[in-house]
């Protein structure tokens, strides 16, 4: 598989630059979005949609996260509380300094998506990487066809990016958003059920699809898409592995001869089928 990484030369790619958390948004009970700038208020680097950043609190740890969005002067990462570093992050306040390095990975195939109708399917925190591309499409609206988002979470409280889901995106021209939650709950008038079933119910015609979510959701979404006749090379997803260096050296994120940090995290289903079935 070819290496799609740009030839990025930095002084020392393993040493982070100093950054600052300027804003923290509580998305759900266990997901927060962190806005990060350099110490002088600039964007640390300019990522492509789908690329990754090594984000660290040096005294606690460093880990790879997808960049869910960016502004003119900041990057955004939506982070779920799962381990030591993320637990610490969930306790810090705005103004906390941090380390950041990147951007890493290949990002979404934007040129391939241009001029086409796009279907985005997300589950839980899995909407975070997909959102970087949705935002890009929204910002460059005329370059893309119809945008459709199908998103679900366990409950209303677990839905991330509610402002986008219920305010910003539905208002956009030629864009539709379908939201579902796993179980009925009081006050929820929307759809109830799992994402894969909802996708089948909505019965889309084949188009370029970007999907990300828990492995079990992905598994059934892929089955649903296959049933509806979607083409493997038009089904795009992102993978997750433990990473340390981010630059294809430290060894642990390989799937076959691919390094997820360098050759991924974005793969088409066609590419995945050529890789070993497990890790």
């Amino acid at each position: 598989m070819s290496v799609s990484t740009a030839d990025i030369k930095r002084i020392n790619p393993l040493i982070p630059i100093r950054g600052k958390i300027t804003k923290i948004v509580q998305e759900t009970p266990d997901v927060k979005t962190f806005h990060v700038t350099t110490l002088d208020g600039q964007k640390p680097f300019i990522p492509l949609p789908g690329q990754l950043a090594m984000f660290s609190i040096p005294q606690v740890g460093e880990a790879m996260f997808s960049i869910t969005s960016q502004g003119p002067h900041h990057l955004e990462m939506s982070i779920k509380e799962v381990g030591q570093l993320t637990r610490f992050l969930h306790e810090v306040e705005e103004g906390q300094e941090c380390g950041i390095r990147g951007p890493y990975g290949n990002g979404f195939p934007i040129d391939y998506c241009k001029g086409k109708d796009l279907l985005f399917i997300g589950g839980g925190i899995g909407l975070a990487p997909v959102r970087s591309l949705i935002n890009y499409c929204v910002e460059n609206r005329k370059d893309f066809g119809k945008l459709t988002v199908v998103y679900g979470a366990r409950s209303y409280a677990d839905l991330v990016f509610k402002e986008d889901l219920f305010e910003n995106w539905p208002k956009m021209e030629n864009m539709e958003v379908f939201v579902t939650i796993d179980r009925p709950e009081e006050g929820w008038n929307g759809h109830v059920g799992f994402v894969p079933a909802y996708v089948e119910e909505l019965n889309f015609s084949p188009m370029v699809t970007i999907t990300c979510g828990p492995p079990i959701m992905i598994k059934f979404v892929l089955q649903s898409l296959a049933k509806m006749g979607f083409n493997d090379k038009d089904v795009i997803t992102t993978l997750e592995m433990r990473m340390k260096c981010g630059i294809g050296k430290c060894g642990r994120c390989n799937i076959g001869s691919c390094y997820v940090c360098l050759d991924g995290p974005v793969f088409t289903l066609e590419q995945l089928k050529l890789l070993p079935p497990e890790y």
Partner: peptide, 12 residues
Amino acid sequence: KVFLTKGYEDTF
């Protein structure tokens, strides 16, 4: 090959 090729050079 590992440390000096494929996009990134390992400074150390």
